[in-house]
Design a protein around this nucleic acid. Structure first.
Lengths: 349, 349
DNA sequence: TTGTAGGCGTTATCAC
DNA sequence: GTGATAACGCCTACAA
């Protein structure tokens, strides 16, 4: 037994003159052996610096690692700095933590096109958001539980919010006060990347797999019901939900001549809406008199300072909790649809 | 070979009539066998649904998992929603991703007092922030590389920012314009939890292990140099860097009678400083005329909207990168001290 | 270029 | 209540 080797269960067994099975039981099934012996084992374990069964060996033997992987559609950098994704992860982490599991963070946008092999150690996978290609998932063990969030994978359980209904509700609310020039700011809606005005030339992402398409349907339905010709409603697209990417597009909108500038902007995220608020204030536009704004998500930041955002609150933390429960087998592996809540505040009373 | 078992390297070898070593080489050392054979192996692997060597078995055999764990001092919920921690994690993730490693997220504040056993599968550990007790780390494999960030662990490499110097610099800048009633808002400085005014009865955390003590030293040194009696400078403490926790304490400060209300507030984080800005505006206080405010961290949010925050920028992303490089052995395992940058803006010109 | 065999540290299934 | 033994799936000398 070389001194610089980690002590193993076998070393302990030899030291104590008992079998390896007994040591294993001492750690995993206390009821399977006498308290006295167990005490003795745990004692000398501590003395020899044995910290319990090796996780790698145990995972090979049992087939389970107690690790759950979350595969994020966006980059880690983006996701970690996005309030909605962070809340989702909080929800996941909360449940995992409670059940002694840990969280492995992966992104579908890594330098390596494939998901690292080490990921397949996970006992289950939560896929958050529309990933660029389902081919990514092929390297994952096909037997492991997998749940998708905010989009669908055939034959797998899903956690969703009813985006269409929520967007219909908030647009209907907004249109109760007639808008002369409504406009829509979309989040990653076009088939090819675009930051700017969407023209009829642009193709959009396929409707069945994309929450932003559902959100747009909701907006359009409400606009139609209000007698607005949706064809005439200008739309802009934003690729990433960050200040840096939003700002130029929003400048473009707010710097239109007053006769063309929208007086109502339906935004697909609070981040976008908040940036509109900030930039509108910089230009001396009054909210809501000159410009009404709605968001989506209900992030905390939108409710802190005046004008508070009119938005749809989706419970991202709960989405995370549910996804985690499904993966751990604590909830049935079936599609789950969460309710949203309309938050009416200053930006569009 | 039962149908419902995952196909293994051995199955593949049998199927092809070659040895297991050859299959292993086909995946791990392409140069060790003829391209033709390799092609054939990879082909039938795909056909049989063999997705490459099993990560659990491989990790047992090689002793490495290609997983790096980050142990966060704060809860996951807090850390994920905190801009500074998120940036740090981005930096870590960036380097790990580049080297084919993945990120396991742990918190020292889990429901279980101990770190889950599965964590010890990691090849290395990055400890971010002052954890409640070093005993937590005892369950970790003592041989694995470990680096601490923003605090010290004896005998381990560390990544730090020079908090004392940075805080001296920003306070010295602020005091170039004399302050009648300077005040300090600290972040987790007292030995026992406190949200409110610090009196002389309160004990503070030990200076050698706490960045907030270093920051306070910097403030005090600058105040002393400006001829201010630091004993007379009121201090408040905040336990958590969130709006909800900050707001009541800040109310208490701003609602003091005008003759007692500070006209300069040195804050230990941008989050605190931004909350001061928001709440001061709500009360009609002018910044910087009635109240000057400094922050710490240099988070993006502080630079977006007017008044922009005067603060110290610390490069959290780079901290993460360095910690990850040390863990992966790409950088020497020695203490690293990052420079900070004074950002002078509207809130304290 | 390919094959053989031993072992990584553990747990499950039996016996006793 | 305790012990022997066979996997778990893979990697890597070393031999051929």
């Amino acid at each position: 037994m070389p001194a610089n080797r980690r002590t193993t269960l076998k070393d302990l067994a030899r030291e104590l003159g008992v079998s390896t099975a007994t040591i294993s039981n001492a750690f995993n099934r206390p009821d399977q052996l006498s308290p006295a012996l167990r005490e003795r084992i745990l004692g000398t374990a501590k003395r020899l610096g044995y910290g319990g069964p090796d996780a790698k060996a145990r995972s090979l033997r049992t087939g389970r690692s107690r690790i759950i992987a979350v595969i994020l559609a966006e980059s880690l950098t983006y996701s970690l700095n996005d309030a909605v994704a962070s809340e989702f992860l909080s929800g996941v982490a909360e449940v995992l933590d409670n059940r002694g599991h840990t969280l492995l963070l992966l992104s579908s946008r890594q330098t390596q096109a494939q998901i690292p092999g080490s990921a397949s150690m996970a006992d289950g996978f939560i896929v958050y958001g529309l990933i660029p290609s389902l081919a990514l998932l092929e390297s994952l063990p096909s037997q492991s539980p997998l749940v998708s969030v905010d989009f669908d994978i055939a034959g797998r359980p899903t956690v969703h919010v009813d985006n269409e209904a929520a967007c219909h509700a908030i647009a209907a609310h907004a249109l109760r006060t007639p808008a002369k020039r409504p406009g829509i700011i979309n989040l990653r809606l076009t088939a090819t990347p675009l930051n700017g005005r969407i023209s009829s030339d642009h193709r959009l992402l396929p409707p069945e797999r994309t929450i932003t398409r559902s959100r747009l349907s909701g907006f359009h339905r409400a606009l139609g019901e209000a007698g607005v010709d949706t064809e005439q409603v200008p739309m802009w697209n934003i690729e990433e939900n960050t200040f840096e990417v939003c700002a130029p597009v929003i400048s473009e909108i707010l710097d239109l001549p007053a006769s063309e500038r929208p007086d109502l902007l339906l935004c697909m995220s609070d981040r976008i809406a908040l940036t509109v608020v900030t930039m509108a204030e910089q230009r001396g536009l009054r909210i809501p008199e000159d410009l009404r704004i709605t968001g989506f998500d209900g992030i905390a930041e939108g409710q802190y300072r005046a004008p508070r955002l009119t938005t749809v609150r989706q419970n991202s933390v709960e989405k995370g909790r549910i996804a985690a429960r499904i993966i751990l087998g604590l909830a049935p592996a079936e599609p789950s649809l969460l309710a949203t809540e309309l938050l009416i505040a200053d930006s569009c009373p």
